[in-house]
Design a protein around this nucleic acid. Structure first.
Lengths: 265, 265
DNA sequence: GATTATCGTTCCACTATTTGAAACGTCGTT
DNA sequence: AACGACGTTTCAAATAGTGGAACGATAATC
């Protein structure tokens, strides 16, 4: 299939290059990318010039390297404010974190992955942008599994092939079938656990954020460590967690679709 | 001059449209943009399709509106981590905010404007992404003036025409000449004040963040209100502020240009 | 100090993509 | 039933992107 290969024309190609640089996690030079990238030298060069001139990339003269540019930060602020659940969820996330005294994560699905859009850490106050915008695997995080469990079949089948099923720990789910089984259980329970599936000693309880109509819009989780809590202790937080998730879902629906199915009158 | 008119080809045009939507601050429909935008309907439509398909925009079916998309948040995380001063400055910003018990802002110049890249609020813990990515005017904020005061003449002359000189308050500087005079004073003092120039009752003291070689890389400020502090009280914070700024500048230089002018050996 | 890699930059004929006026569908209003 | 306001699609003309190859500037090797 010629999918991401040559679609969305010039703009798509430019954004693919942007992604490559962002994902690299370190400044790249032209020759670095030449090895990986599908484009010939002159073409790549021109794209880098354009993106730099646009402020989407920052160019380091001394080292001749390209990094993601600050214009992205500006644009993302708008995206976060207008398109993420964070502004709506903020009061509930605050309250939950204060009430439980634990770290709370707010996430949304983006392209088969978990995108963290907010975080409240009860212990050390701020650590935010360091977390907001961060992505994680869906198949081995609490929020990821909670959200997937409540997707309709068609959407779920689109996401499953995108999972890497890399075994981060001995507890990581490593097959699509095992994941499907787990998701059925989560759907029944209404809650998901991360049993040290992503990082050793890190456990969490997570709930999906659903609109009253049942559409998945995000996920909410409380994270702790095995030294501080047992899974059972986390389970006792379920009422507070699902309560907050329900409220956020309701507010989000009003925000997203102000005209609701008003059956009365 | 045909400057931003038709440069950087297709990519530039697409990004201009992205900007327009991000700046609007609310979801826009095709017809909304048709009035403003320089492009004909079909062209605009195609760009919106492309950007949406790329995740740079999110499309709302019910209302047929476009908003900035979550892919931006993902990309911005990388930009923030790799291209902003925030990771380097974090420990100093933390310490300064704790020491003074006041709100601390970390900013950089972006395109003639002040881009806030981090914030530490001593009172209410987190409010971050809500501030990181936010932009403000350079000519009437403490950090903006502090940074401009230490630019070299050529750079400064590029920025001044970009200032709007809108009179937010009775104290706002409203002319290029007045600004130049103020910048000379700031350069001499090594510190800038915001004397309710942007918002009534809001005052701040700001220092530039300079590399040891003297290049401006950012600005650092402590903000308060006229009810809590006088300008004199803020001035007493100067040592702590400039100390932190100097440290950040040194660390940033090492980070940005590890090969320094080592005159010794 | 000359020779050779390496890497970024520029050129330009060739080609694929973008362009936008006009036509078309769809839905809500008159 | 006709109209109007919008979003969507079409298609030939116009424009912008492509990339092999040549060029220059450093840095590495002999």
């Amino acid at each position: 299939m010629k999918d991401s290969e040559h679609k969305d024309g010039t703009v798509g190609k430019a954004l693919a290059i942007l992604d490559e640089i962002a994902m690299a996690g370190r400044p790249l030079r032209l020759s670095d990318m030449l090895a990986t990238s599908a484009y010939p030298k002159a073409t790549l060069y021109r794209f880098l010039q354009t993106l730099t001139s646009q402020g989407m990339l920052a160019y380091d003269h001394e080292r001749q390297t390209y990094r993601p540019g600050l214009r992205l930060v500006r644009l993302a602020h708008a995206a976060w404010k207008q398109s993420s659940l964070a502004p709506v969820a903020r009061p509930y996330v605050d309250a939950l974190s204060t009430e439980l005294g634990e770290t709370v994560h707010l996430a949304q699905l983006d392209n088969g992955q978990v995108l963290y859009v907010d975080k409240r850490n009860a212990v050390s106050p701020v650590e935010m942008f360091s977390q907001a915008g961060k992505i994680g695997p869906a198949y081995c995080t609490g929020v990821g599994k909670a959200m997937m469990a409540f997707l309709d079949a068609a959407e779920l089948e689109r996401l499953i092939p995108k999972q890497a099923f890399h075994a981060y720990t001995a507890h990581t789910i490593t097959s699509a079938d095992a994941l499907r089984t787990e998701l059925v259980a989560i759907r029944k329970a209404g809650i998901a656990f991360d049993r040290e599936e992503h990082e050793p000693n890190i456990i969490c309880i997570a709930a999906p954020i659903l609109t009253p109509a049942g559409r998945v819009v995000g996920g909410l989780s409380v994270t702790s460590t095995t030294t501080r809590h047992s899974l059972g202790a986390l389970e006792s937080m379920k009422p507070a967690l699902t309560g907050a998730a329900t409220q956020i879902g309701k507010d989000a629906a009003d925000w997203l679709f102000p005209e609701q199915d008003r059956t009365g009158i």
